[in-house]
Each structure stands twice: as C-alpha cells, then as structure tokens.
Computed example of a mutant assay.
Amino acid sequence: MYVLQSYGQLIKTIFICRYLLSKTLRKRINAQLNKGEQLHGLRVYLWFGGDGIIRKKQEEQQQVTVRCLNLLTNIVIVWNTIYIQEIINQLYTEEHEINDIDFGHISPAPFEHINRLGKYSFNANFELNNKGLRPLRKLNNF
C-alpha cells in the first residue's frame, strides 16, 4: 500500500513540475477548465425556476430531476455539435483557412442562442438541406 501511495505522489510531483515549467500545458489545461465551466453554465441556464435546488424529498424523484437535466443538456450539446460541424463544413467549402489549433477552442456548450423563456415561433416555412438541417444564418462579418 505504501508503495502505491508513493508512486502516486511521484506521478503528481512530476505532473506539477511539468505544469509549472510548460506554458503551453497550462494554456491547454486552462482551456479545458473553461469548457467545463461553460458546460456548468449551460446546466445552470437550463435549470431555472428552482434556483438550482432540488426540492424533491424522495431520492427517486431527485434522480428523475437530475436525469431530466442531463437529458436536456445532452440534447443541447448534440444540437450544437451538429450545427458546429455544419458551420465548419461550410467554411471548408468556402475555402476559408482553418487551423487545427482552432478546434481546441470550440466548445459544444454555448447557450446564448437558446430561448428558454418568452415566445416561441415554429415557422416551418424554411427548407431543410439534404441532411435534414435548417439553413445556417448568413453573417456579413466573414
């Protein structure tokens, strides 16, 4: 047991030394932490009306609440991932230069486009592309 603890401490020490000596490693870790925080922000944004507190007393009902939040979070992430990929494909098609490093900055957890309150419009007067996706919005900034 003592050997395994010492081995674990050795691995942690080596990692800490690498972390302190490598600016690129620190940047990569910080970027991943930011993505984790963005995912947490998405969950907080999706969970409204209860101030983030599970008010159910029975464990089974608490688990249902948490599973619903997980399902909703996963739906948003899949939706975002599909449309982010579609945007990347369009940029490739339009022959924009995309560096592989740029992909490290993309997160599937943005939520600014989600309207969780207010009016919803289900206008079906748009055509879907051959993949069954809605057309992408045109931006004039690019």
Rank of each mutant, 00 (worst) to 15 (best):
Lys57His: 13
Lys119Pro: 07
Ile98Met: 04
Ile11Gly: 00
Ile101Lys: 09
Glu37Ile: 11
Leu139Glu: 14
Ile77His: 06
Asn140Val: 08
Val76Ala: 10
Gln32Cys: 07
Leu25Ile: 06
Tyr19Asp: 01
Thr73Pro: 03
Arg67Met: 14
Ile54Trp: 02
Phe126Met: 10
Gly36Val: 03
Ala31Gly: 01
Gly49Gln: 05
Arg28Thr: 12
Asp51Arg: 12
Asn130His: 10
Leu71Trp: 05
Phe103Glu: 00
Tyr83Gly: 09
Ser6Tyr: 11
Leu20Lys: 14
Gly52Gln: 04
Ile101His: 03
Gln38Trp: 00
Glu97Arg: 10
Leu128Asn: 02
Leu128Val: 05
Ile14Ala: 08
Gly36Phe: 05
Val3His: 05
Thr65Asn: 04
Gly104Ser: 07
Glu37Asn: 11
Phe15Thr: 05
Lys35Arg: 07
Asp100Leu: 14
Gln85His: 09
Asp102Pro: 00
Leu46Trp: 03
Tyr2Pro: 03
Tyr7Asn: 05
Glu37Thr: 07
Arg137Ile: 06
Asn70Trp: 00
Glu59Thr: 15
Asn140Ser: 09
Glu37Phe: 14
Leu10His: 10
Gln85Lys: 06
Tyr120Glu: 13
Asn74Cys: 13
Gln85Tyr: 09
Asn30Lys: 15
Asn30Met: 15
Ala124His: 11
Lys131Glu: 14
Lys12Arg: 07
Glu95Arg: 13
Leu33Gln: 10
Lys131Tyr: 11
Tyr2Glu: 15
Cys17Glu: 05
Gly104Ile: 04
Gln63Lys: 15
Thr73Arg: 02
Ser107Ala: 03
Asn130Ala: 08
Pro110Lys: 01
Ile53Asp: 00
Gln85Asn: 13
Ile16Phe: 06
His105Trp: 08
Glu95Asn: 13
Ile98Gln: 01
Pro110Met: 01
Leu4Val: 06
Gly52Met: 05
Arg116His: 13
Ile114His: 11
Leu133Ala: 02
Val66Glu: 14
Ile101Met: 06
Asn123Tyr: 08
Asn141Gly: 01
Lys138Ile: 14
Leu20Ser: 10
Leu69Gly: 11
Ala124Phe: 11
Asn34Gln: 14
Leu139Thr: 14
Val76Ile: 12
Arg116Ser: 05
Asp100Glu: 12
Thr13His: 06
Leu136Ser: 08
Val64Tyr: 15
Asp102Tyr: 02
Ile84Gly: 02
Ile77Asp: 05
Leu139Pro: 01
Leu91Phe: 03
Arg18Phe: 11
Asn80Ala: 03
Glu95Ser: 12
Arg134Ser: 10
Leu69Asp: 07
Gln38Phe: 00
Arg43Met: 15
Leu133Trp: 00
Asn129Asp: 08
Asp51Pro: 00
Glu127Gln: 10
His96Phe: 13
Ile101Val: 08
Tyr92Met: 10
